[in-house]
Computed example of a mutant assay.
Amino acid sequence: MPPFSRVAVGLPQDTIKPDALKAGLAEFISTLIFVFAGQGSGMAFSKLTDNGSNTPAGLVAAALAHGFGLFVGVSVGANISGGHVNPAVTFGAFLGGNISLLHGILYWIAQLLGSTVACLLLKFCTNGMTTSAFALSTGVGVWNAFVLEIVMTFGLVYTVYATALDPKKGSVGTIAPLAIGLIVAANILAGGAFDGASMNPAVSFGPALVSWDWTNHWVYWAGPLIGGGLAGVIYELIFVSRSHEPLPSTDY
């Protein structure tokens, strides 16, 4: 049965139930923790090195901070919301039939708010330092970055499916936050020098909003959503075997 047959819209009243609101709050807090650590590390490195964050050492620092931050963000949210911490992960989960559309929208709102609040806190705590929006490096075109974001986010969401969403994951699920953090760190080392390696529309949205810099911002939405969606559909279609029991009618 194709994964699209399991896609659910959901009912508006389901999004205001206590469990749904708790899940949304968990996504808000997890994303805030992740963005504060990741964006904050870049700002700190820039300050300590007199704007030398675009160096090999800065790239390694960014990879470590984002990897550790995401490991924690996923871990603390896993038992409440699933620890998506990323609209692309939520979109991939939706296309694979693992979350309803309305619950996914609730997650998106929480994730974008978490990123924005993290950047506002960073700007206040650093006495007005700029929360830098993601940008393309010299010589990198928008279509280069677009494909790069698709590939990197595909790898991320594929990892999420294999370690966290696959019903056959067994004990492998216990290392899901670590694997997810590591793939993000690895992708930053691979793509950070080219377009910043976002893989996460929320991570891009907060800094862009607070600094009001929307240059090529669409790349950091379109690329991750396509990559995450492809990973969700492919993993569900090829690797997941389910009983194919229909969802309750209230979920449609």
Rank of each mutant, 00 (worst) to 15 (best):
residue 200 N to W: 01
residue 171 S to K: 15
residue 210 V to G: 08
residue 161 Y to A: 02
residue 194 F to S: 13
residue 196 G to P: 11
residue 170 G to F: 02
residue 133 A to T: 02
residue 153 T to K: 11
residue 158 Y to A: 15
residue 180 I to A: 05
residue 157 V to N: 06
residue 217 H to F: 01
residue 186 A to D: 14
residue 181 G to C: 08
residue 208 A to Q: 12
residue 141 G to E: 02
residue 168 K to S: 12
residue 125 C to D: 11
residue 161 Y to I: 05
residue 151 V to K: 14
residue 171 S to V: 06
residue 195 D to R: 06
residue 148 L to Q: 13
residue 126 T to A: 03
residue 165 L to F: 01
residue 169 K to W: 01
residue 208 A to W: 05
residue 163 T to C: 08
residue 181 G to E: 14
residue 133 A to P: 12
residue 159 T to L: 00
residue 188 I to F: 04
residue 181 G to N: 12
residue 175 I to C: 13
residue 185 A to C: 05
residue 194 F to L: 14
residue 136 L to Y: 01
residue 167 P to Y: 00
residue 187 N to V: 02
residue 125 C to A: 15
residue 129 M to P: 01
residue 216 N to Q: 15
residue 132 S to A: 13
residue 170 G to N: 15
residue 163 T to N: 08
residue 143 W to K: 04
residue 173 G to I: 09
residue 141 G to N: 06
residue 130 T to R: 15
residue 216 N to V: 03
residue 126 T to N: 08
residue 157 V to W: 02
residue 190 A to D: 10
residue 154 F to Q: 09
residue 146 F to Q: 11
residue 212 W to I: 00
residue 188 I to R: 14
residue 162 A to G: 10
residue 127 N to M: 03
residue 195 D to M: 06
residue 207 P to I: 01
residue 173 G to K: 15
residue 179 A to N: 12
residue 207 P to V: 02
residue 178 L to W: 03
residue 206 G to Y: 02
residue 170 G to Y: 04
residue 136 L to G: 03
residue 221 W to I: 05
residue 148 L to Y: 04
residue 146 F to M: 13
residue 131 T to K: 07
residue 141 G to V: 01
residue 188 I to P: 14
residue 215 T to L: 02
residue 158 Y to I: 05
residue 219 V to E: 02
